[in-house]
Design a binder for these strands. Structure first.
Length: 310
DNA sequence: TTCCGACAGTGGGGTCGCAAT
DNA sequence: ATTGCGACCCCACTATCGGAA
């Protein structure tokens, strides 16, 4: 079951959970054997043997089906998808990585236990049955809140550097594989202004326009530096208009200081740094915007006003 | 008739395994 | 030995189409 995006609804009929940045997992235990399935249906238990072991201990010989998220935490305790990626591809025992990158499974829904299917039961009943299970590290059932101000919980998510919140109707049944308005996800995102420094060639339908825009901002000493690429958020019409403008202001050399930003891939094209845009992003880390999406041109701002994102 | 959900296709970021060089 | 690419993960977003409302 998947959530639709939107602002958090308020009211006594909604429960709120934290949104974890990890891998969505359906865990299935049958007769003492447990498997982990990703959203694409891949069986990935081999990559997380400690979770499989813990699930076997939890289920015994009973049938059990859980919905949850595998999460890796950075040294500060914040969920880190980047760290989790190191565990993702490991198909051999990988003991060293298990110690380096410990993972947890946050089980937030119970779909079946014993010979009882619970998908037809309301959310609150499923959570109640979930709480009855004897969770122990590295498994846990994350908390949910009812009647707490959603804005306040968004702040909690921000303080703990989580992805956002998910609001769930307390009377809703579980709809496998469906995207439902009974679950509403509210991701935390930020906005920033950027300087357009060039563009990368596009593939397929984007061949005639561009793949992504090369973005820059001014650092503390006033130098224009590379801060990432934005390749989503454009309509086809916007792509055509922007490409026409880019062609008019094309320059042979990168406007970045120093040049080039990295070893700029062949095919990157440069423009005079005179266009200012607005992008939404999740975080600015490692000197790059994460998950940037284009919101539009800002004709009311000059490039000199564009500083580094927060 | 309108609207919503599913799908396909493009883009971003990232790591690892394996084949090609 | 190094490099490049595909396979998986997360995601945002647009465009399209068919069926539900």
């Amino acid at each position: 079951m998947l959530a639709t995006g939107g602002p958090p609804p308020d009211g006594p009929e909604w429960a709120v959970e934290m949104k974890w940045d990890g891998i969505r997992i359906i865990a299935v235990c049958d007769a003492g054997d447990c498997a982990l399935y990703t959203r694409n249906g891949n069986s990935v238990g081999r990559s997380y043997p400690e979770l499989v072991t813990a699930l076997k201990r939890l289920s015994g010989t009973d049938f059990l089906m859980l919905d949850g998220e595998i999460v890796a935490q950075d040294p500060d305790g914040a969920p880190s998808f980047g760290r989790l990626q190191r565990r993702m591809h490991v198909t051999r025992p990988g003991e060293q990585l298990m110690a380096e990158v410990p993972v947890r499974l946050f089980a937030f829904d119970l779909l079946a236990v014993g010979d009882t299917a619970l998908t037809g039961e309301p959310y609150l009943e499923r959570r109640r049955r979930l709480a009855d299970l004897d969770f122990a590290d590295p498994l846990s059932a994350p908390p949910h809140w009812i009647g707490t101000d959603a804005a306040q919980l968004l702040n909690v998510a921000r303080e703990h550097r989580l992805e956002g919140i998910v609001s769930k109707r307390i009377d809703s049944v579980y709809l496998p594989g469906r995207r439902s308005p009974a679950w509403i996800k509210t991701p935390l995102r930020r906005n920033t202004e950027v300087v357009v420094a060039g563009w990368t060639p596009g593939a397929g339908a984007f061949g005639p326009t561009f793949g992504s825009l090369i973005l820059g901002a001014h650092d503390e000493s006033g130098r224009l530096v590379f801060i990432g690429l934005a390749g989503t958020g454009f309509t086809q019409a916007a792509r055509r208009i922007i490409r026409a403008t880019l062609d008019e202001i094309e320059t042979p050399a990168s406007p970045f200081d120093p040049i080039p930003p990295e070893s700029a891939p062949a095919g990157w094209r440069w423009v005079a740094p005179i266009l200012v845009g607005d992008v939404e992003y999740r975080e600015f880390a490692g000197e790059r915007l994460r998950m940037p999406s284009w919101k539009g041109l800002r004709t009311d701002k000059t490039p000199a006003m564009v500083e580094m994102p927060a």
